[in-house]
């Protein structure tokens, strides 16, 4: 048997059978009320000792939006569980089984940001970072941290790209020396595990802006998707056949990228 390589040169998907099995499992889990539901709005403070040294922790970034009514940093925690279930099946990454509230992080103190070098951030509204949060985020990036922001588009919420534009406005202020630019179709994030030949994240909802990357000395420290990848993890929809699978694949690529680049 020969080894198959998923690399910058060419990638290959997992088997259809494995994918379907994984997706079915994830859907079943989501359908059980409360089974995987996160206890949201829990304290996100943590100690440095909380750092998982071997397992991958998919941390959710707890930040404050400009409007309290739409302060939904913790929206769709159960979608994360769907995705992490997929990630466990599709890869050999040891994924932490910490609960949602244990995985939450804040930029307001160092003890919290030391919980994990990978932060996931979603939102549909405007936000502004405080100077203290910018300082902590800057240090997080310089030490090797990675942030993935995904524009969440909710029915009856803000216009489709408010979060996207806020991210594009705020992140360069965190690292003035860094460069914010389109991630680019050749970026390894589209090819490191699964191959996305078009070089962009799958589209569910949102604006038409390109996927963006914040580059610090050629290292992409933050990645922004405008297309609501996270909400596509919720379930497979007849209207968007194959979208959930594509969203799982994109999420897998982002995680593999963060663990290898």
């Amino acid at each position: 048997m020969t080894a198959t390589s998923r690399d910058e040169i060419f990638g290959e998907g997992v088997s259809r059978r494995r994918f379907l099995a994984t997706a079915a499992g994830a859907l079943a889990a989501a359908a059980l009320p409360g089974a995987l539901a996160p206890a949201a709005r829990a304290s996100s403070r943590g100690r440095a000792e909380d750092l998982e040294e071997r397992e991958f922790v998919f941390s959710r970034f707890n930040y404050k939006m400009s409007s309290n009514e739409t302060n939904k940093w913790d929206y769709g925690g159960e979608f994360d569980e769907n995705f992490l279930g997929y990630l466990r099946e599709a890869t050999n990454i040891p994924v932490s089984s910490k609960r949602f509230e244990e995985r939450a992080v804040q930029a307001s103190d160092e003890a919290s940001f030391l919980k994990s070098p990978f932060w996931f951030m979603i939102g549909d509204g405007d936000f502004s970072l405080t100077d203290a949060e910018r300082d902590v985020l800057a240090e997080f990036f310089k030490r090797g941290g990675f942030l993935w922001g995904d524009d969440c588009v909710r029915e009856g919420g803000h216009p489709v790209d408010v979060f996207y534009r806020a991210f594009v406005r705020e992140l360069p202020q965190v690292l003035p020396d860094a460069r914010l630019s389109p991630a680019g179709p050749d970026n390894a994030i589209y090819h490191c595990f699964y191959d996305f030949p078009e070089g962009k994240a799958p589209y569910y909802k949102g604006g038409n802006g390109p996927d963006m990357g914040l580059f610090l000395e050629n290292r992409m420290v933050a990645f922004l998707t405008p297309s609501d990848v996270h909400c596509a993890w919720r379930m497979d929809r007849p209207k968007y056949p194959g979208l959930q699978a594509a969203a799982f694949r994109m999420g897998t690529n982002v995680v593999v990228y963060a663990l290898t680049h």
């Binding site: 020969t2 080894a3 198959t4 910058e8 290959e12 595990f193």
Partner: peptide, 24 residues
Amino acid sequence: VVYVTQAKHTYRQGVERRDELVEG
């Protein structure tokens, strides 16, 4: 070379040829 699945799938970085280290 980093193995990315329980099977023999690998992800290679820094290689210069298509088939370099393809067997891991």
